[in-house]
């Protein structure tokens, strides 16, 4: 009987076989996606177009392609300097956040220390506090320790954004690793720090990559914090804030603006394209957990 009922869905409608339906779906989706990314493609195109031609209907391929927008943005608008500021903040905060979150997640996920439950509860409680709530004291705190006018201060404060989520990701992962591994390494007389560094951390590699990718995007694209910290000190601007101020200062130089934008997004888009699996796993983990 199963044989007899196997095919009717296909036979009933010969013009819309599953294969054909998939082809139609693909075409419709392709059109939607093309519209979806059009603004970004258009931006890249504009960045290679001379200012006088940007608003002509020249299509996506510039008639007189030029890299002059890039050289102008890089030198005159200081985008070069902002690029390295951003790189410093991003790399520094990624290293610090990943190590701190891995250590904390390790302890919270599989060690039993007095006070653990309280700490966990506190952390979960703060998960959804808006940045607007905390930005003023964060700024005052950096001022109090003398770092409100330095890239170091910005880098340290950037570590705070998602450390709770990252810690929970690590804790969830570490809690699933079999207990015997640590016992074995203890038998071999390996100390706790080495056990963590040489045994546990390599096991958590997928989470490490996820956290690195997510924190990189977070730090690179961060806006409110660098905006507040660099208000009085334009030399410390990151690319996000630099591009934002570019618009305020050279509001008709659309070519320079789109070139600066392209410089800003290319590194993160590259990183995302190559490591998107890890990024998506991290997000999916957030909703499943």
């Amino acid at each position: 009987m199963a044989d007899a009922t196997h095919m009717p869905a296909v036979r009933r409608d010969p013009f819309l076989s599953p294969r054909r339906r998939r082809a139609i779906t693909t075409v419709i989706l392709a059109a939607i996606c093309a519209v979806w990314v059009y603004p970004l493609v258009w931006m890249i195109s504009a960045s290679f177009t001379p200012n006088t031609e940007i608003f002509g209907n020249g299509g996506l391929i510039p008639r007189n392609p030029t890299v002059e927008n890039y050289t102008r943005a890089w030198r005159e608008a200081n985008i070069g300097k902002y690029f390295f500021n951003t790189l410093f903040v991003t790399v520094g905060s990624v290293i610090l956040t990943t190590i701190a979150a891995a250590l904390m997640g390790y302890v919270l996920g599989r060690r039993s220390v007095p006070g653990k439950a309280v700490l966990m509860a506190l952390m979960v409680f703060t998960l959804f506090i808006p940045q607007g709530f905390t930005i003023i004291p964060v700024f005052e705190f950096l001022a109090a320790i003398g770092l409100s006018q330095s890239l170091w201060g910005l880098m340290l404060a950037t570590c705070g954004h998602s450390i709770v989520i990252f810690t929970l990701l690590f804790a969830g992962y570490f809690s699933q690793i079999p207990k015997e591994l640590e016992e074995a390494s203890r038998m071999d007389g390996i100390g706790p720090v080495q056990t963590f560094w040489y045994v546990m951390l390599p096991l958590a590699k997928p989470i490490v990559v996820t956290v690195v990718v997510m924190q990189t995007l977070q730090a690179w694209n961060d806006f409110l914090l660098p905006l507040v910290i660099t208000l009085a000190n334009p030399a410390l601007r990151t690319l996000s804030v630099g591009v934002y101020s570019f618009r305020g200062e050279h509001f008709i130089d659309w070519g320079g603006m789109t070139a600066a934008s392209a410089i800003t997004i290319v590194p993160v888009v590259m990183l995302f394209l190559f490591l998107q699996r890890y990024f998506i796993d991290g997000l999916a983990g957030a909703v499943k957990g």
């Binding site: 603004p39 970004l40 258009w42 931006m43 995007l217 690179w220 694209n221 806006f223 690319l239 996000s240 804030v241 591009v243 934002y244 618009r247 603006m257 789109t258 934008s261 800003t264 997004i265 993160v268 888009v269 995302f272």
Partner: peptide, 11 residues
């Protein structure tokens, strides 16, 4: 993954 400052300009 596109920073908001860039989106602001593009939009």
């Amino acid at each position: 993954v596109t920073p908001v400052a860039v989106i602001a300009i593009v939009m």
